[in-house]
Design a protein around this nucleic acid. Structure first.
Lengths: 226, 226
DNA sequence: ACAAAAGTGTTAAGAATACACCCATGT
DNA sequence: ACATGGGTGTATTCTTAACACTTTTGT
């Protein structure tokens, strides 16, 4: 460090990977960039983080201003990773990009800033700006892991849900089918949900018991060290 | 975001948590701050990251300038987490602090910048600046987890080592004793080390076979999803 | 011969996997 | 009565955990 006065920090950007499950598919929120670089390309919603706000405040601002999502809309948020973005990719030179993962359900993006916020199925993404494809893959990996040892799924489901809905959510997020009986045993063993006492009486079939998560906060349930 | 021209980014700092094992104890590298805030308090070595460098470059600079460690001295590095540091804790206002985890062995810090770089046992740390105590705990947790499903221990050991040395390193990092026979079975199952064919003939006891890691790069070995 | 660390297997319990049929409802 | 999704148990395999004695060396 050469001296405090001459210090110019890198640009700081904050981007969010928001997942939700729709019709048995894991979807990710993208916007279509209104400006260069990567004008018109699809990208994760993000903003420049200013000195007057924290990265999480900037994140909320990105979701609100780029996708019309109110502050409380995203049910769960955690930090994913911080990338150095090479100067070549941005007119302002080298940037540091802090990435967050968000999970929710029943989100309806609104075209607030004319950036066309849209949920895409993660398995059929368009060409993306920057390394956003890689970042989404990392976010999905994180989600996959946490599903197996936490109650994180609470954020992906409505307040009440049937076990089939829960299984569908897990399958969509994990990207693989699960055995119904084993899945139910495993969920029971985690002790993260409880029956509400009500039934979902839709359709020409036996009604489904409804459940809720015992906690609507992240809870680490199992870890196998020796 | 109000406009590109008026944008002032937060300060960006980069700090490193360097672990090594000495005499069966997990040690962490600290320096004694030469300036306010927290003047004279012990802290993780760190620097301000400037626009002309990436965070990993800044990290190397921190280790070199604050602790006299040459660029290649730290055998393994990974990013840990990025914290928002409240404006109250820093004269330049709100800062974003990118934390890295480093692992190595046989490091000898040199008092390059008169900041008194020293390794402390993680179980007996002095009062630390900022939230560095919490950060070190998070770093240790990360290390604990990775030890169980990667070959990350390669960075904590010399090129050749006995199984007892390896076990001691695991015990120090995990913070708990391990069963000798089970440990050896587990390491064998991971298939991350191989015998060198040589023996360590020190001391009044049976010589120990020496081993080396098959790879000196991070290798994910097992993950139990369904 | 003794001290000191190296080396080595088996058993029991628990977790994960594979797998198929009956139940309750609406039409 | 039939179509639809809801609900349930067991046997097998694999993984983890607990546990004690013999070997090789230097003094």
């Amino acid at each position: 460090m050469t001296g405090m006065y001459s210090y110019t920090p890198p640009t700081v950007t904050v981007d969010g990977v928001v997942f939700q499950i729709v019709a048995g598919q894991l979807m990710v929120l993208l916007i279509q960039r209104a400006r260069d670089p990567f004008k018109n390309a699809w990208a994760l919603p993000g903003v420049y983080c200013s000195r007057e706000e924290t990265t999480t405040e900037a994140l909320r601002r990105a979701w609100r201003s780029k996708a019309g999502l109110p502050a409380t809309a995203v049910a769960y948020t955690e930090q994913l990773y911080t990338f150095d973005v090479a100067a070549a990719q941005d007119p302002r030179g080298h940037a540091v990009s802090v990435i967050y993962l968000g999970l929710s359900h029943d989100l309806q993006p609104a075209g607030a800033n004319a950036e066309n916020p849209t949920f895409f199925a993660v398995d059929t993404l368009p060409q993306l700006a920057y390394e956003h494809q890689t970042i989404i893959a990392a976010a999905r990996e994180r989600l996959r892991n946490k599903l197996t040892y936490t109650n994180i799924a609470y954020a992906l489901l409505p307040k009440q849900f049937s076990l089939s809905q829960l299984q569908t959510a897990y399958e969509a997020a994990l990207g693989q089918p699960l055995d119904k009986r084993n899945f139910r045993k495993k969920i029971a063993a985690l002790e993260i949900i409880e029956p509400t006492g009500t039934y979902n009486k839709e359709g020409a079939h036996r009604p489904a018991r409804l459940y809720r998560f015992k906690q609507q906060q992240l809870q680490v349930v199992s870890r196998n060290l020796e």
